[in-house]
């Protein structure tokens, strides 16, 4: 008898138990799950559309006809795109190089030390490029560079690289500083205890342990430089068209599948670095 009732209630109990669990999952708020998934759809669908249609054979960027790498081929043929890519990579490399070195040195001087006079000021200055709206930085830098150019007569891509170095420093600084702060001070004491001189401690202990942070900083700087448009747009002189500037110019002229292809490539490059970065920092933990 008892067995019978048990077997009879079972199939009914399963779904209702599930429902009951849902109702008693106290963390849930109605509609919040849907909103979160909607958020992801909202963030990713335009990008997905862009990527998908970059592989469309048709000239239309709306109607799908056939898969093709045609627009990538054309993009590679395009001299403007090629030049812009070279400029972008040059600027990003130089800016990353200097920004990472400067940020590493600064991080060594601002972390793990007794509070000292001017520390807050130093910290504020390093983060200054993050606090000022980009458009303001862009026009002020333009104003300064115009004065310097007029006074010295020196022109060139160095100005653009310099402008990028400035705003790359705080981005490179963040992960390096975080890494240093997480670093166990006793590691260095252990090194000194085992007869390593201060230089040997830095070379054999501090620097190797800091390296993941330095890599992360360099990658962030590179991505940020590669993606910059506003400052480059105002500061870049003739013949210094970076890839984003080139793309903006093309968009203003009209939408072509070629832009989709270049955009996808640039997107892919940034994603590659960021995912790599995520993976490295995750692995290290």
């Amino acid at each position: 008898m008892a067995d019978l009732t048990a077997s009879r209630t079972k199939p009914v109990a399963a779904p209702s138990a599930r429902k009951a669990r849902r109702m008693t999952d106290l963390r849930r708020q109605p509609g919040f799950n849907a909103m979160a998934w909607g958020c992801i759809v909202f963030l990713y669908s335009p990008i997905v559309v862009l990527i998908v249609f970059s592989f469309n054979d048709n000239r239309s960027v709306v109607r799908w006809t056939e898969f093709s790498l045609r627009w990538y081929g054309e993009a590679f043929q395009n001299k403007g795109i090629r030049n812009a890519t070279v400029i972008s990579l040059q600027v990003a490399s130089v800016a990353t190089f200097f920004a990472t070195i400067f940020a590493t040195l600064a991080a060594l001087a601002t972390t793990r030390v007794r509070a000292y006079k001017g520390q807050t000021l130093a910290y504020a200055i390093i983060n200054q490029p993050l606090m000022v709206p980009e458009i303001v930085t862009a026009v002020s830098t333009l104003a300064l560079f115009t004065i310097i150019k007029k006074a010295t007569g020196v022109n060139g891509i160095g100005y653009l690289m310099l402008a990028h170095t400035v705003f790359c420093i705080p981005f490179a600084y963040m992960p390096i500083r975080a890494r240093l702060e997480d670093m166990d001070l006793t590691m260095e004491q252990a090194g000194a205890d085992l007869y390593a001189t201060p230089y040997q401690v830095f070379r054999r202990i501090t620097l190797p342990l800091l390296m993941p942070g330095v890599f992360a900083g360099a990658m962030l700087a590179f991505v940020v430089s590669l993606d910059d448009i506003i400052i480059s747009l105002l500061v870049a002189g003739p013949g210094e068209t970076t890839l984003p500037i080139f793309i903006l110019g093309q968009i203003r002229r009209g939408i072509t599948p070629e832009i989709n292809a270049v955009s996808t490539l640039l997107l892919g490059l940034s994603l590659f670095f960021v995912i790599l970065l995520f993976w490295i920092t995750r692995k290290r933990k």
Partner: peptide, 13 residues
């Protein structure tokens, strides 16, 4: 003089 640290402080790299 050498030390054994409380958290051992082994070099992770």
């Amino acid at each position: 003089v050498n030390t054994v640290f409380q958290n051992y402080a082994l070099f992770p790299h």
